[in-house]
Design a protein around this nucleic acid. Structure first.
Lengths: 349, 349
DNA sequence: CTGTTAGCGCATTCAA
DNA sequence: TTGAATGCGCTAACAG
């Protein structure tokens, strides 16, 4: 019941050459677009033969020969993170536009798996790697045999292009927005910070902005990587409650370091019956689609993730093609999307 | 500044053989785990040499030789869809557990791209394909040179294993839940149905369940694929408003065919100031994480997506290993997660 | 148990 | 312009 019988094995370049009555070399040249070295007659014959046989070159053989594979890999710590998925969309499109195919590898926050994939990828002759590392310390000391573009964060002792958010700008924007809206007790909640440059930048910026405003208190708590467990959820709620109780006379708000965490916080706030900007404001980095609909909308810092993904590929391609300029940081500005979660009913400034 | 110099080119199996003073074949055997055909002495030598050289076999060469690549592909219509991403997680894990690597290809709802990838994949010698087709009519007539497992929906004239939701069970569950909770005007909103078996099953089931309850009216509207445009959003809102006005005396609820659409509907409901189960109930297929936090929580039909992904791979692997049994449908039951969006204040049954 | 040999499908010398 | 020959790194006969 399969669409077609296709008992034939896949045609090879030799089959095409034979049918077209030309040498394999000519076919190879045709495939690689070296038309200036081919007569019209031969070209036409080859074209015909290819169509008849429905021939398509074997990428594996090509890769073996030339070392390149038209494959690039995207290594991400958490496939669940909307940020990663959004970046992936831009990446995927760019790949398609340039004849590349994307290998997606989820390290699932395990350094071991990160290592595993880093090794594995070279054996697939990937031409380049888009690397969203778990943290700055990568435990594979071997040099990568392919260009690497980092996403979101840096790696120690490894200099490579990086595409990411302008965290200083974005964190300033976020913090100032809260302060300007009359919040004077702000809790910044982050997942583990050590070794993750982007998080560090955000937290430090937050601290320094708050330090410039003597009337506002700024707390930072660093929680463990959130799992789906009720336990983590309860713990988070407890910590938020503590913060809430600590500033009875102030207007309180929370900044969340990323999209997944924002969701957890929203959940916790709901459990605590505090899910209302009059009780506790909420602002999150990342702007997943649901941010507009949770509660009456969560104010967020939107990253141009799609463009970032696309740009990442372009940078990588430049490297693949031999560009040797010194590594650059391409930082995108974050955009503040204001929603109800940081509104004051009365402008009580 | 790169971690290591690595001026050497990558070691090959010959290098290992030379260093270990054995034949290439023995090394190959070692690599493939045929230890019973190797003396302890040789085995140790090879092991040593491999470690010294930090050798890793070239997958491309292997693939070329044996035709298999340890690569499988996942072809999805919309990488934005949380369903697909969740399935992908299970898939990715299963791949990892079995030494496979996942190629992710986003057809972005374009039949042309679907065709493009279907062609491309064979040239990468993928060993199997997990295929979430755009719709039942696939415009590539060529037979696939690799096993295929379908996800979510069927394809006409093409018999293959399929993993999906038990749509009849799930749609019955959903509809009955609404009816039992006193809703007697139910609007089922779907994205295009033609050629998409899973949607058809859901809609038909809905219709027949409603038909068995004479006091409840069931409407179905089929909207176009939602883009991110304001226009689509406004149109959707209009249609919902019409439904709302049509049944002034009844208790109204909406069923949404999938997660993305549920979000759009929630947005529309909010625009219309109807985002409250007392005004209009809401129930959606799929249970993305945010479903718990939108409004006071959206009741949904949860699919065991992760397990589905994992199971899909297992099925595929069986086929890859030559299993010839006749194609089967593996249907998973949907689970109803009841939240506020379908609660009645008064039990007005 | 072990090694030699011969390709897998293609791109690249090199000659013609 | 064209094509024959060579080898990319590996595995699978086939001998020993």
């Amino acid at each position: 019941m399969n669409s077609l019988a296709s008992t034939h094995k896949k045609p090879t370049i030799s089959d095409v050459a034979k049918l077209a009555k030309v040498g394999k070399t000519s076919v190879s040249r045709y495939l690689n677009g070296e038309f200036d070295a081919l007569s019209e007659r031969i070209k036409a014959q080859i074209e015909l033969a290819i169509n008849i046989l429905d021939y398509r070159p074997n990428q594996m053989a090509r890769s073996l020969k030339r070392g390149s594979s038209k494959l690039i890999a995207y290594l991400i710590p958490d496939i669940t993170n909307p940020y990663s998925v959004e970046v992936m969309q831009g990446l995927e499109k760019a790949c398609q536009d340039n004849g590349y195919t994307l290998l997606v590898c989820n390290t699932n926050r395990s350094l071991e798996k990160e290592h595993y994939y880093l090794q594995l990828l070279s054996s697939y002759s990937v031409e380049g790697l888009v690397f969203h590392p778990i943290r700055s310390h990568v435990n594979s000391l071997t040099a990568y045999p392919y260009p690497v573009v980092l996403v979101d964060r840096k790696i120690e002792n490894f200099s490579a292009d990086r595409v990411g958010l302008d965290n200083i700008q974005a964190a300033t924007l976020a913090t100032m927005h809260l302060i300007d809206n009359g919040f004077d007790a702000i809790l910044f909640i982050s997942e583990p910070i050590v070794g993750i440059s982007s998080r560090l930048d955000r937290v430090n910026t937050f601290k320094s902005v708050v330090a410039n405003h003597h009337n506002v208190s700024g707390d930072v708590i660093e929680i463990t990587e959130q799992t789906d467990s009720e336990h983590d959820r309860a713990l988070l709620a407890t910590q938020i409650a503590q913060f809430y109780d600590a500033y009875p006379t102030k207007r309180k708000a929370i900044i969340s370091i990323n999209g997944s965490l924002t969701l957890e916080i929203a959940l916790a706030l709901k459990m605590l019956n505090l899910a209302n900007s009059q009780e506790v404001g909420l602002l999150g980095f990342d702007d997943p689609k649901w941010a507009a609909v949770v509660g009456d909308g969560i104010t967020s810092i939107k990253q141009p993730t799609y463009r970032m993904g696309y740009a990442t590929f372009e940078l990588l391609l430049k490297r693949i093609n031999g560009y040797q300029g010194k590594p650059q940081d391409i930082l995108f500005a974050g955009e503040l999307i204001i929603r109800s979660s940081t509104q004051s009913l009365s402008s009580d400034r």
